[in-house]
Write a protein that binds this DNA or RNA. Structure first.
Length: 466
RNA sequence: GGCCCGUUCGUCUAUCGGUUAGGACACCUGGUUUUCAACCAGGUAAGAGGGGUUCGACUCCCCUACGGGCUGCCA
């Protein structure tokens, strides 16, 4: 009998949603959603010094943009501190933990002394086996009574079987002297209480898993399935940092990458399923598994990200695409669309979405639908509007007056005009582009004419040839 | 310092002892073309280094190098 899958994403709210965190969340989400399971969200805010509500909001916003929805309420780890303390005391009662009265100064001194000797030693609390009768009336922490011999084995779905010598692990603190829980305790208690079956997280937690597994053992709880995934690196192979540019998910939104493309790219970054490259989110849910996750850190490749996004842009449904474009404009702090821009853009999406990879690029190519008279040609397109070309445009307008406004009717008119002037179609298309869009990279001239309509087309041609 | 993880084309990866080491992005060449994007045909390009095990290693083991992580009353 298989338990239903429950995964979780558990970021600490100390900043925006990191791109690596976004991918971790995505993996958890795909794994759960692909199996009819639950995907939970927990904010690890036990460190009151560094946790901020703004960061929590930013993380939620980032996840929402990525299209990752979570089940139930967002859990605040800090809110569960009483339960963590309860478990710590249960461990005390079971004898799997003990009170330690060593002060931070004593511990620091111990470490300094070891360092001075040029060695490194784990702190061994003198209180581990002390008689309770000798306990002072002083603040204390609750430490795990970790086994000092033997080994702890992590059966990791990504990293394989990892063996850690127990002698390398100290008696970690579970409950601080102020009564608040440490991460190492809280994460286990919460995962257990929330029914998490699969812990998919960054491999910076691989070593921690051994200590956490001791807590599971101490409480007699079932150990979840572990899957420690490699971190994402920058293009230079070093750990991803601000130096590399975009590290926050929100920055990718502001750069204009569509969320579907972002999901696809991130899914393929460190995970593969045969030759599958471009796929929908639904397909990803069906294919995604732990065995396809690679063991080496992956580097971010913006070229491939763009390519992937280009495919998704072309596949996008118009109404949804328009919504996403408007959200992008807000995120990028660009002016919103006017009513008429919105209407024309919507009508023209069909001919721009398959030639753009990002929203800025799409908007640039949709300039013909966004601009208004008089159209200001940019430097490149202005070159096409020489006096000869302007004359040709002028001769064209009367013939457009009477044409029926379809591509089939327009095509012979334009090709005839080109032929009559002894020029190739390209020589006619260039000034047309300049007149209609003020740009040299645009959709087909026919598509632009059809989208903006006869009157606007003629008016723009007259403006340009005047 | 100790412990743990990793290393296939420039990049993401496939391969799970026997392949001309495959695909995708990027790049180069040619084609198509109405600019851009796309598309079609083709091309360059990889098992970190060294030892083993084996009839046979990218694949299994060991060492080295390099990269990363952990080693907190941070998460």
């Amino acid at each position: 009998m298989n338990k239903p899958v429950v995964t979780r994403f558990a970021p600490s709210p100390t900043g925006y949603l990191h791109i690596g965190g976004g991918r971790t969340a995505l993996f958890n989400w795909l794994y759960a959603r692909g199996r009819g399971g639950k995907f939970l969200l927990r904010i690890e805010d036990t460190d009151r010094e560094r946790s901020t509500p703004e960061a929590t909001a930013a993380i939620l916003k980032g996840l929402t943009w990525l299209g990752l929805d979570w089940d139930g309420e967002v859990v605040s780890q800090f809110d569960r501190k009483d339960r963590h303390a309860e478990v710590a005391h249960q461990m005390l009662a079971r004898g799997t933990a003990y009170k330690c009265f060593s002060t931070q100064e004593e511990i620091a001194a111990f470490r300094a002394e070891a360092e001075a000797r040029g060695s490194y030693a784990l702190f061994q609390s003198p209180w581990r086996d002390a008689d309770p009768a000798t306990h002072p009336d002083a603040p204390y922490v609750i430490r795990m009574r970790a086994p000092r011999e033997g080994e702890t084995i992590i059966e990791d779905q990504v990293q394989g079987r990892v063996v850690i010598q127990n002698s390398a692990l100290d008696d970690m603190i579970c409950l601080r002297s102020d009564g608040t829980p440490t991460y190492m305790l809280a994460v286990v208690v919460d995962d257990h209480d929330m029914g998490v079956t699969h812990v998919i997280r960054g491999d910076d937690h691989l070593n921690n898993a051994a200590r956490q597994q001791m807590v599971y053992a101490a409480m007699g709880w079932d150990i979840p399935v572990w899957a420690h995934i490699p971190l994402i690196h920058g293009p230079d192979g070093k750990k991803l940092s601000k130096r590399h540019g975009a590290t926050g998910v929100e920055e990718y939104q502001a750069m204009g990458y569509p969320a579907a493309g972002m999901r696809n790219y991130l899914t393929r970054l460190g995970w593969a399923h045969g030759d599958a490259e471009i796929f929908s989110t639904e397909e990803a849910m069906k294919m995604f598994d732990l065995s396809g996750i690679g063991r080496a850190p992956a580097r971010l490749d913006f070229k491939k990200l763009e390519n992937t996004c280009g495919h998704h842009m072309a596949m996008a449904e118009n109404a949804a695409l328009l919504h996403e474009i408007e959200a992008y404009l807000v995120a990028a702090k660009r002016p919103a669309l006017t009513q008429s821009q919105r209407a024309l853009l919507q009508a023209g999406l069909y001919c721009v979405k398959d030639r753009a990879k990002t929203f800025p690029e799409l908007l640039e190519k949709a300039q013909f639908a966004l601009t208004s008279r008089p159209v200001q040609p940019d430097e490149a397109s202005a070159k096409a509007l020489d006096s000869v070309s302007r004359g040709i445009l002028k001769s064209l307008t009367p013939r457009l007056q009477t044409a029926s406004w379809t591509k089939d009717a327009l095509e012979p008119i334009l090709t005839d005009v080109a032929a009559e002037n002894g020029i190739g179609f390209g020589k006619l298309a260039a000034p047309l582009r300049a007149a209609l869009a003020g740009r040299s990279a645009t959709p087909s001239v026919y598509d632009m004419m059809l989208v903006i309509g006869r009157d606007e087309t003629i008016a723009r041609l007259e403006d340009a040839s005047a």
